[in-house]
């Protein structure tokens, strides 16, 4: 008594899988894919007063990219994100290494917990606290003048450096966790082999540990770079609004000036820049992964 083809089809794994995932998939199509497609479409439309006219044009991109202010803001965003990524990943690596190689197994999750706690407390307030720390009469300057190290408080706010430190702090756990995961995967006997074969610790680290940890490092780079380039809050609070990044101009175009096509073109441009950087890193990642096999 064979089941009818229809019944067999309905019981097949593929259909079951699609049935099961359909609510989430439909949600993602309606609220993620469709809006992204709309954003792309808008970026090729024409701005009428209060309405968007569906006349296809590339004028928005031409306007955005020929505008020296937008170009410099985009460049600043890439530089700040790049700087933040570099600082975050370089600072995070030793911590990930410490937890993976020097903390006893039973205490590892406690350390990870300790590192993730600050990440879960109010983002806005954490960012603002850096203003408190770096301010003209802030924590660092009070310490410096209090110790008599300087008479003139340092002007630290409203700079790319201040924005970078703040973001590096905000994204620290994002860098630590992927590096930690890839360090955990390293077969410890490989390190012993390196030492047995006469390499010293530093060389073993350089030739064995670091290359094997590279996928985690590249993961960390991506996971820090992508969200920081779209950060809105830090340039406003720490940059004093004088050093806008790309999210600030997109927001301004879409909500304040209400030029949706131009705003969309800027958003898509920013996304393309992010995607280009991400693809380069993915490519690097693939090379490293192949190299480690």
């Amino acid at each position: 008594m064979a089941a009818s083809p229809l019944k067999r089809w309905a019981r097949s794994e593929a259909v079951n899988g699609y049935m099961m995932i359909s609510p989430t998939l439909i949600y993602a199509i309606l609220l993620l894919a469709a809006p992204l497609v709309t954003l792309v479409a808008y970026s090729f439309f024409t701005d009428g007063y209060l309405v968007v006219i569906p006349d296809l044009t590339t004028a928005n991109y031409a306007e955005a990219w020929s505008d020296p202010i937008f170009r410099s803001i985009l460049l600043r965003s890439v530089i700040v994100s790049g700087l933040v990524t570099l600082v975050t990943v370089v600072l995070a690596f030793p911590i990930a290494y410490f937890i993976s190689f020097h903390v006893p197994a039973a205490k590892k999750s406690r350390w990870l917990f300790l590192i993730t706690i600050p990440f879960w407390t109010s983002y806005l307030i954490r960012v603002f606290q850096w203003k408190v720390i770096l301010n003209y009469n802030g924590v660092i300057n009070s310490i410096l003048t209090g110790l008599g190290l300087t008479d003139h408080p340092l002007q630290m706010l409203n700079s790319i450096g201040a924005i970078s430190i703040t973001l590096a702090h905000a994204y620290a756990p994002f860098a630590i966790l992927p590096i930690f995961v890839s360090l955990e995967k390293i077969d410890r006997s490989l390190l012993e082999a390196g030492l047995d074969l006469g390499e010293n610790r530093l060389l073993t680290f350089w030739r064995v540990t670091l290359p094997l940890a590279m996928p985690g490092v590249i993961g960390a780079v991506m996971i820090v770079f992508i969200p920081t380039i779209g950060d809105y809050v830090t340039p406003e609070l720490i940059g004093g609004g004088k050093l806008p990044m790309v999210a600030n101009v997109i927001y301004q175009q879409l909500l304040k000036i209400d030029n949706k096509p131009l705003g969309s073109a800027m958003a898509i441009s920013a996304m393309l820049v992010v995607a280009a950087v991400a693809l380069v890193f993915l490519f690097l990642n693939r090379r490293f992964l192949r190299g480690s096999k």
């Binding site: 969200p227 779209g230 997109i250």
Partner: peptide
């Protein structure tokens, strides 16, 4: 980036 989710 969150700004992309927000604007789309």
């Amino acid at each position: 980036p969150e700004i992309i989710i927000a604007s789309s």
